[in-house]
């Protein structure tokens, strides 16, 4: 990749095309084959692939390493980076390193609290928060300076993403927070999984009112449900998730063997509805440990083939 060339994701979005990103969780081990297998399943179905950073505070192969493996396969990664595990020194250094390895997209997060993970006894960092991280990457990109104000020899020009959760509380503040992330320098936003369309639409309306959809590309989160149990688990146990009872009921209303199909139906309906919402510029598919379904979703939703931007 040429040093200055923008990422594929950036080009798809700035061309005004409806973008598709997908998620890929690195393995709990050093096995490159698992990444390769997941990468193959996603090939051709997404404009970029998000690689999680020790998601849910469980130790996994590092996001940077997994991104590099995907790059080597010809896929474009979005490197997720959380502020939970690294202080500002480590974050900046890893961003420089990642860029030098060809990584062009970053998603800035604060990260799930470690009490959820496999090592609740760990100390956390949270030296800076996700908005600070967005700002830091932005200053590196536009001013060519690190946080200390030092002029970098060559500056990382990342396409900067941030997360938004329209379903968390307090609702009134969610749009202000989105605005803060945009002001700090976010180019694109990936949202929490959308099951509650009404609330999502309301959030989008507020975002449009504030003129935010003109300034940023919003990619709505999609997670296909596999079973009624999964729907219930997400509703109750996963922080910041909003799965309405009507969705749980639909999942429970079909025989077990048909649940995954029902989940796919819901998922496709949601995508169709999202495409109608002004300001939604794409979707981000998080098929947790179910990467094989992504191709089918993208094809059935009529989002295939993916644009070639090079």
């Amino acid at each position: 990749m040429k040093p200055e060339s923008p990422s594929n994701l950036q080009r798809v979005l700035s061309d005004g095309k409806f973008a598709v990103t997908a998620e890929c969780g690195p393995p709990r081990g050093a096995d490159l084959e698992i990444i390769r297998r997941k990468g193959e399943l996603l090939r051709g179905h997404a404009d970029a692939v998000n690689v999680t950073d020790n998601q849910t505070a469980i130790v996994r192969m590092s996001s940077i390493a997994a991104c590099v493996h995907l790059s080597a396969m010809g896929l474009e990664p979005v490197m997720q980076m959380v502020t939970r595990d690294r202080n500002r020194i480590a974050l900046q250094s890893d961003i420089l390193g990642a860029y030098s390895l060809g990584i062009r997209n970053i998603l800035c997060l604060s990260g799930d609290h470690q009490t959820f993970g496999s090592q609740p006894d760990a100390m956390n960092v949270f030296d800076i928060d996700s908005v600070n991280l967005v700002h830091m990457v932005k200053v590196m990109k536009t001013d060519g300076k690190d946080m200390s104000g030092f002029d970098l020899v060559s500056s990382p020009r990342m396409f900067i993403g941030a997360a938004a959760n329209p379903f968390a509380d307090p609702f009134e503040y969610r749009v202000i927070r989105l605005a803060k992330k945009i002001d700090a320098g976010a180019d694109f936003i990936q949202t929490q999984c959308v099951y509650n369309l009404d609330r999502f639409k309301e959030w989008m309306r507020l975002a449009r009112e504030e003129g935010l959809t003109e300034k940023v590309h919003i990619l709505a989160g999609i997670t296909p449900l596999k079973s009624e149990g999964m729907a219930k688990y997400m509703a109750k146990k996963v922080a910041g998730m909003d799965v309405p009872d009507s969705v749980i009921k639909r999942m429970g209303g079909v025989p077990k063997g048909k649940a995954a199909e029902k989940g796919l139906d819901i998922c496709l309906e949601t995508i169709a509805a999202l495409r109608e919402i002004k300001g939604v510029h794409g979707i981000h598919i998080m098929a947790i440990e179910w990467e094989e379904i992504v191709g089918r979703i993208v094809e059935t939703a009529g989002l295939s083939p993916r644009p070639v931007t090079a």
């Binding site: 800076i128 928060d129 908005v131 927070r177």
Partner: peptide, 9 residues
């Protein structure tokens, strides 16, 4: 956090 609530609130 210094800039508002996380997505888990």
């Amino acid at each position: 956090l210094q800039n508002g609530p996380c997505g888990g609130s």
